[in-house]
Amino acid sequence: MSEPTLLRVREVTTTFDTPTGPLTAVDAVSFDLAAHESLGVVGESGSGKTVLSRTIMGLQPRRGVSVTGSVLLNGTEVVGASEQAKRELWGRQVAMVFQDPMTSLNPVVKVGKQIDEVLRVRLGMDRSAARARAIELLEMVGIPAAATRYSAYPHSLSGGMRQRVVIAIALAGSPQLLLADEPTTGLDVTIQAQILNLLDEVQGRLGMSTILVTHDLGVVATRTRRLVVMYAGRVVETGTTRDVFARHRMPYTRALLESSPKVSNPSHTRLAAIPGRPPNLLDLPAGCAFAPRCAYATERCHHERPVLEPADETGHLFACFNPLPLRAASPS
C-alpha cells in the first residue's frame, strides 16, 4: 500500500460518435494503480473494459471519438497527448498484450525481428545487441530453443507460443505497466495456466504493475490483488480481490459470481442466471444500468444513478442504493 501511484485514472469518459447518437463506452471511470500492483478489470460484453484499456494506452481512432478526464501515467498525461508523446510512452512506460496473438503479430516477419524492432527503435540498441536481447527475452517467456525460434514465422508457432512472443515484445522495452486484454481467451486450459503463471512471474521479476482485463472471474481470482467490476461502461464495484469476491455489496457482482459455474460444484448445480440481456449502450436507463435485471431494484434505482461510495476504509467502493448485507460466514 505504501507504493507510489503509477497510474491515476480520473473521470475518464470515452464517447463514440455514431450515426444513431453518441455512445458512451466508458463513463466516468476513476481508479489508481500503485507500482508493483496487479489490478483486474472484469466485465461482460459492452462493459467497456476493452475500450477502457485502450483509452489508458491512448489508442483511439483519430476521428469519431472523444475522451475526457485524465489518465496520468507516471506523471504524464495520456488523454489528449500527441502521437509523438504517446510513442514515447508506448513500449517503455506501458505495453499491451492483446487477445488474439495471431493478429497482433505480423505474419510475414520472423518473430525475433519483431522483438528486435522494438529494441532498436525504442531503445536504440544496435543490431547484434538487439538480437542477443531478443533471444534472452524469448528464453524469459519460456520459449524452448529460443535461438532457433528467433527465425520462426508466427504461423509456425502454436497459439500459446505466439502469446509468449507477444508478451516478449511487450516486455522488450521494460515497461512499468503491462496491460493484458483477455490474454488467455481462446487458449486451452493448460496453456492458459502456463501463460498466467508466466505473467505472474515476469511481473514479480521485473517489478511491473499489471492490469488484467477479462470476462473470466477465474482468471483474476488468484492473479490480481485488486479488482474493478464494470457494467455498461461504469465501475460498479472495486476493492481488493478478496473483498470483492467475499464481501461484495453490489448485486451485479454477486450475480456475476453466482452465474459462473465452478469446478467444485456438484454435478447438476443450478446456476443463478442473471435474467435479461446485457445492456444496450445506446439506450441505457436513466438510473442504474443494472436496474432492469436486478432483483433488488427499487423505484429510485430506475431514476437516479448511484455513485460509488465506500464500503469500509480499505478502498472498497460500490455503486448501489440497496447494497447487499455483508454475509457473516462462509462467503460464496
Binding site: F16, T18, P19, T20, G21, L23, A25, G43, E44, S45, G46, S47, K49, T50, V51, R54, Q60, P61, G64, V65, Q99, D181, E182, T185, G186, V213, H215, L281, L282
Partner: peptide, 14 residues
C-alpha cells in the same frame, strides 16, 4: 470473447 472491439461498438451503433 466478451469484449467489444471499438469497431464493433461503432458498427453495432450504426
Amino acid at each position: 470473447s466478451s469484449s467489444l472491439e471499438l469497431s464493433e461498438l461503432v458498427e453495432e451503433a450504426t
